[in-house]
Nucleic acid binder design. Structure first.
Lengths: 250, 250
DNA sequence: GCAAAAGTGTTAGTCCTACACCCATGG
DNA sequence: CCATGGGTGTAGGACTAACACTTTTGC
């Protein structure tokens, strides 16, 4: 599947696809990038097929770049979805196929296993662009009950579950926040992912203890009340923390 | 691939395989079940292909049962290995294929992605049996530097890494130990997986605090010196701990 | 000056670590 | 009766959770 609108199945491996749960953070909400299919107006995760000469990671990178315009995105494989009936659950697409009007859709009938990736991106930098099958590419709140195709809703839920677990022993935020951010913003991100509130003071202490933040001599202007300091990630230590893991837990 | 010695590729999906890292515990050593290939005498992980109408989990269950004779094994997907060159790294097999003497081997030339599973089994209950391509099925110490095909050595290392991490927030042991076991045995298991020694007294306290053990009114006989108590897992709480996770960390 | 948000501090409790001591068994 | 290994207890330190106080800013 390419952006040019053709689908040359010779370039890809049959039966193997991947789906990306692309998380972004905006207005205190955790968002997921979705596509709306032209034909059924249902929603789907950005995905694609594995090229004959690429790794899954390369394929995911490709999909990610095509939908968001970004390179060098943090992403991670988290589960393979291989239920043989996963492609058969969708009545709307099946009906469409049966009309015979859309030959492009025929490969949806095949059985696919799909490798789930999740990715973390800076919401403000993403330029969402739809693929060949969709007419819209848009952010949705992660909890929104939209009509998703196949098992995509389940894939999102699983990704969120893994992301939450990840939070306990890996730093998160570098890819989800702008370069400069305030401590309350970072906290809000954590609270949103975890789905519960955290103590402001303990959060700050713990975060600082990780040594992955640089405090800037700058405060966030324009906001009301006392202006918070700005921080940036200390990339060297951040990277080290990614590899070695963090001690604390949320 | 079946035990009867035929390989009907129509029954399986192309390009998708799975490999199982089957861990067992014996004589204070962490072992991995391996196969020795008939042709090259190299070692391989038990694996197979995904059937057209089964989930990866079912396929792994099938492989596991065929090699060990056991059902209901604890297992988990941990990573997909998708390097396009992963099937090309093996010179020995390539040489054999080039001779043309073993047509069975031809599908090794294809590109496969392989889903890695790890499984935990009771060493004493396993009856290792080789598959069609191998002449021997045997346990090897997880650290033994044997000539493994393809990236199988890397798959084992990755599985061990994941297992270690798992140890911090999931109970382990039910599938690796006999029904009744002593605290020192359980500790030895943990030490072996983690690759370092633990304090005997703290270990006992922590384990008991998880409430996943039933202390039996019975002591291990025959051993020297003071005879230790026997324990069994409290399956109800064990299951709960599997789902909800443990607090402590090693 | 008051309300709201942010920065800094304190304290109690819990958990982890590192030991010390006693008990049972085989030789 | 001593060496070895197993069972139980305890003190110190680190980390966490809960909460108080002060500072800054907009109205």
């Amino acid at each position: 599947m390419t952006d040019s609108g053709t689908f040359k199945s010779d370039d890809f491996l049959d039966h193997i696809s991947l789906d990306c749960v692309i998380f972004g953070f905006h207005n205190g909400e955790l968002k997921v990038l979705t596509l709306r299919l032209k034909y059924t107006k249902e929603f789907a995760l950005p995905g694609g097929f594995l090229g004959k000469e690429e790794t899954l990671e390369d394929a995911a990178k490709r999909v990610l770049q095509e939908r968001t315009g970004l390179k060098d995105i943090f992403m991670k494989q988290f589960k393979v979805f291989s239920d043989p009936d996963r492609s058969k659950t969708n009545v709307a697409i099946q009906d469409l196929i049966n009309t015979g009007a859309h030959p492009d859709l025929h490969f949806f009938e095949k059985r696919f296993i799909s490798v789930g990736f999740y990715a973390l991106v800076d919401f403000t930098k993403v330029k969402p662009s739809p693929d060949f099958f969709s007419d819209k590419c848009e952010w949705k709140n992660v909890n929104e009950q939209a009509p998703y195709i196949l098992d995509h809703k389940k894939i999102i839920e699983k990704a969120l579950e893994v992301l939450r677990r990840q939070l306990s022993y890996q730093p998160i935020g570098y890819n989800l926040l702008p370069e400069k951010f305030t401590m309350p913003e970072l906290q809000k991100l954590y609270e949103t992912i975890l789905g519960r509130e955290l103590d402001r003071r303990n959060f700050q202490r713990k975060m600082l203890s990780y040594k992955i933040l640089n405090k800037l001599d700058e405060r966030k202007k324009g906001g009301a009340y006392k202006s918070p300091f700005l921080y940036e990630f200390n990339l060297e230590n951040y990277q080290k923390a990614l590899n070695e893991g963090l001690s604390g837990s949320f």
